[in-house]
């Protein structure tokens, strides 16, 4: 290699030729020959097969695309968007004036007058409140009480009233009023149960979960209200959870687990 003639080998040329030939080989086989041959076997014309291989049109060059004639009812008509979520963070005067008609049951400050029947709204996630208002209105979550109440609300008004109640501080609970839920229930909350395909409750309802946008806060709601909702999901009476996220985890719960979980969340501060 110390021979000066060989030192001046045309490195640039050979390196470029090597790389371009690898590229040309890949284009020939990956972009053209393979898709065209696969398409021919599947009855897809050459141009379409190449488009599919390049990802310009959907589908595999080696298989027909399935067809659909879907027309199905969604579980909820709520769809999140960046703008909607942004507007839910701002409490407005409009929300305050609308909230008067809610105060009869949910309290002026979002603390329910009869906690066994109605949920607290104070400190609840605005997205969760909005989702339920919207579902009451559209009938995704039919309710003799709520559906007529929200019927007249516009989109903006539902946003405003949700943001309004979300801004209140959560109800304090007197310490040591309720018995502890026990280790098995705490295990469901923190670990879930892989045997029954149940994720930890914390996976969606925890403070650091990254779970679904509309997952509500559960702590300091009443035992009765929480248990009633879990049972409604379990029986399928309530079905406004997108893609059965709650129905699928409530279904395998036993009656005593439902009561235990309701007790846990009613007596905890952190979720």
């Amino acid at each position: 290699m110390n021979d000066p003639d060989r030192l001046e080998q045309p490195w640039r040329l050979w390196a470029s030729v090597a790389i371009l030939s690898v590229f040309a080989f890949s284009v020939l086989f990956g972009f053209v020959l393979m898709p065209v041959m696969q398409g021919r076997a599947a009855g897809i014309d050459a141009f379409e097969a190449i488009c599919r291989a390049l990802g310009i049109t959907p589908g595999s060059p080696a298989a027909r695309q399935p067809t659909t004639n879907a027309k199905a009812q969604p579980a909820t008509r709520v769809a999140w968007s960046a703008d909607l979520l942004n507007s839910l963070t701002k409490a407005t005067a409009a929300g305050e004036s609308l909230a008067g008609s809610c105060a009869g049951c949910h309290g002026r400050d979002g603390r329910a007058v009869e906690v066994k029947l109605y949920p607290d709204l104070a400190g609840q996630s605005a997205a969760a409140i909005y989702k339920q208002l919207h579902d009451f209105k559209t009938g995704s979550r039919p309710s003799a009480l709520m559906t007529p109440m929200v019927q007249a609300l516009t989109e903006e008004q539902m946003v405003a009233v949700s943001a309004h109640f979300a801004a209140f501080p959560v109800r304090p609970i007197p310490a040591a009023q309720l018995p502890a839920a026990g280790a098995a229930i705490e295990g469901l909350v923190a670990r879930g149960d892989s045997g029954r395909g149940m994720p930890a409750c914390n996976a969606c309802h925890g403070d650091q979960s990254g779970g679904p946008t509309e997952a509500p806060r559960l702590s300091r709601q009443s035992r009765e209200y929480l248990a009633a909702q879990l049972r409604a999901f379990k029986t399928g009476e309530r079905r406004n959870d997108i893609y059965s996220r709650m129905r699928s985890v409530a279904a395998p719960l036993t009656e005593s687990e439902i009561d235990g979980l309701a007790l846990f969340y009613a007596s905890t501060r952190t979720y």
């Binding site: 690898v22 590229f23 890949s26 390049l54 990802g55 060059p61």
Partner: peptide, 15 residues
């Protein structure tokens, strides 16, 4: 990502 570019990069991966 498309089949075609996956093939291209697999060829380079082999190298």
């Amino acid at each position: 990502q498309s089949n075609a570019f996956k093939f291209l990069q697999v060829a380079l991966t082999a190298l």
